[in-house]
Design a protein around this nucleic acid. Sequence first.
DNA 1: CCGTATCCAACAGGATACTG
DNA 2: CAGTATCCTGTTGGATACGG
Lengths: 141, 141
Amino acid sequence: MEVTIADNQLIELQKKLEVFFHGEEENSGFCPVRDIMDRFGDKWSLLAILNLGYSGKTRFNELKSKIDGISQRMLTVTLRSLERDGLITRKIYAEVPPRVEYELTTLGQSLLLKIWELAQWASGSVEEIIRARMDYDSKAQ
Amino acid sequence: MEVTIADNQLIELQKKLEVFFHGEEENSGFCPVRDIMDRFGDKWSLLAILNLGYSGKTRFNELKSKIDGISQRMLTVTLRSLERDGLITRKIYAEVPPRVEYELTTLGQSLLLKIWELAQWASGSVEEIIRARMDYDSKAQ
DNA sequence: CCGTATCCAACAGGATACTG
DNA sequence: CAGTATCCTGTTGGATACGG
């Protein structure tokens, strides 16, 4: 049996993955893997973090204009959720008209880094994925 | 104004992020960032990849039993979508009873690596996030 | 300007039954 | 075993109107 370097790397990774497949039962059903999925499972969180990372401190409507297609309601919901998780801060200025600024926390910035790497992967794999899709669709008639 | 090392790192990252915020209009509305979001925006794709990465070549029902809570329908839908994107392969054996095995492609393995890093982040940040949530909830009464 | 409240449509996704 | 087909429900999230 031939074992390539890539195979060895995969086996290494599989060993590391074991961590995430243990402790699920023990800790009263709580599993960190499932917890991130819930956070990233919605449409807007990743985009909001990317935009906040790119723009730095940003006001509500400024952010709304940058995240294409998001409604006022969903931006509010998303930002509240991110604030609750300690990923962003929400600063209100007692002015008229009111001003509210959002900004990534240190924790949020560390997540930004991971999301950026994911975006990097996507950016680098986009062509291959599109090719795979066309290939798949052509075979399916 | 004080500039810390963290600030400099953030500024570096912001410059890198510019890539993802250009070309959206040009390429007929297509943006790689939005494309990954669509891929990761569903409940099961990341979990399926993590499980396939952990278990290697896996049969349908074996996978179903490992992804807690997934229905037969959603596993089928998710696997087809991943196959279409060239992230997994689907191998059918002409036996009775039939056997179908799923496995990550090289592309899928490269994504697995990124997802694992994300899972790492989540695992390391879980306590801080939970603390933030409790803090937030207690203030909200 | 920055929200909240309400209503409603679309769709993800579960349950069940049935095939190759 | 590994699906497809059908039906149906719950959540997501958009549109609109209104408040601080």
